[in-house]
Amino acid sequence: MGVNTTPIKSNVIIIGLCIIVFYYYGSASRPKNDDVIVGSEVISGREITLKELMGNAKNGDAKSQNDLGLLYERGWHVDKDYTKSFYWYAKSAEQGFKMAQYNLGIAYTYGKGVDVNFDKAVEWYKKAAKQGVIKAQINLGNLYISGHGVPVDYKEAMRYFMVAADQKDTLAIYNIAKMHSDGLGVKKDISEAVSWYQRAVDLGSMSAKNSLALLYAQGAGNLPQDRAKAVSLIRSSACQGYPVAQNNLGLLYAEGGKEVPKNTIQAYAWFSVSLFNGVEGAKKSIDSITGQLTSQELSEANKLASKYKIKYAFPINEDDAYKSKTECRYP
């Protein structure tokens, strides 16, 4: 399911390769038709008509109930309705369907169709995590760091992240790197953090590329300062759809320098796709750069931004390694 997984993220804002770090926690409606085929790109493993799916869900099929909940949550083939998505997730989760248990945890975390309730979120995440749902394991780790629904417990957070990391999950590996970088439950060790970030980057992690770029720009830990490599990492991350890297790339184009020549049209386009993908701070950057553009340049920048919003959209399934083996390959 492509809903927020509340990973610990290190958002890197680059200004002339001077970098500020802060934290943040990473559908179009389709025509409704009972006979429409709900394809495998929407619900994994099968193709089925919406009418059949609804019938199966009403007859108690747990997978169909979860899939129907997903359609209502996303507004795919039906009107978006969080109340109905929660209803069907709950029906499925009560039968022990692991992804529905995770989805119910998400609903309680973000108040989708129900009031926010972290105690309930933890309860359902634990059930899903016990059945091996990696995203549930990561979310539990994050809640043990934030203290929502459970007492703050860095060791327990690390335990959940390690379980997921053993399955080569890039966000779990990224979170372990952040814990070493910040000294959460472990001795602060930048060199150890670099090792974990690099492991995630090797698996294609867009979030780890952005954070590793920070360390290369600074020459932190055991890394030599390498601004060219930092820019290369940011470009790859931005290409994959990572909103913070896209904003960073816009800043590099806006300021200009040896590694990235100044280009206000490119800056505008990257700020625009970053805002489109969820970085609200990019709006100020857009306003600032707009004043540097002629009317003709602004028209060109908007056309480019429209293309980028399609080409560099944040992946709907929130795959942290999206396109890492194709056009966004690094190095």
Rank of each mutant, 00 (worst) to 15 (best):
V3H: 14
V3G: 02
T5I: 11
T5Q: 08
K9F: 07
S10T: 12
N11D: 09
N11E: 10
N11P: 06
I13A: 02
G16W: 09
L17S: 00
I19K: 08
I20F: 07
I20G: 03
F22E: 07
Y24S: 13
G26E: 11
P31Q: 06
V36F: 03
S40M: 13
T49V: 05
E52M: 07
M54H: 01
G60M: 10
Q65M: 07
D67A: 14
L68E: 13
L71M: 15
L71N: 13
R74P: 04
V78N: 07
D81K: 10
Y82A: 04
S85G: 11
F86M: 08
Q95M: 15
K98Y: 10
T109H: 08
K112N: 12
D115A: 11
D119M: 07
A121C: 02
Y125N: 00
Y125I: 04
Q131Y: 14
V133G: 00
V133L: 10
L140M: 10
N142R: 14
L143E: 06
Y144F: 12
G147V: 10
V150K: 05
V150H: 05
K155S: 13
A157H: 09
A157E: 14
M158Q: 06
Y160C: 03
D166G: 15
Q167K: 09
K168D: 09
K168G: 05
D169G: 04
I173C: 00
I176D: 01
K178F: 11
M179D: 05
V186N: 09
K188L: 05
K188C: 01
D189V: 01
W196H: 15
Y197N: 01
L203E: 08
G204D: 04
N210H: 06
S211M: 09
L212T: 02
A217I: 01
G219E: 11
A220F: 12
N222P: 07
P224E: 14
Q225P: 02
R227T: 09
A228I: 08
V231M: 10
S232M: 12
S237T: 05
A238G: 11
C239A: 03
P243A: 08
A245G: 03
Q246K: 07
Q246I: 02
N248V: 02
N248E: 02
K262G: 00
K262F: 03
K262Q: 12
A267C: 12
A267L: 01
A267T: 02
A269N: 00
W270E: 01
G278A: 08
E280Y: 09
K283S: 13
K283H: 04
K284F: 05
S285V: 02
S288K: 15
T290K: 13
Q292M: 05
T294C: 07
Q296W: 11
E297Q: 11
L298H: 13
L298R: 15
K303G: 11
S306I: 11
A313S: 06
P315R: 09
I316W: 15
A321C: 05
A321Q: 00
K323W: 06
T326E: 12
T326Q: 12
E327W: 04
E327Q: 00
R329E: 03
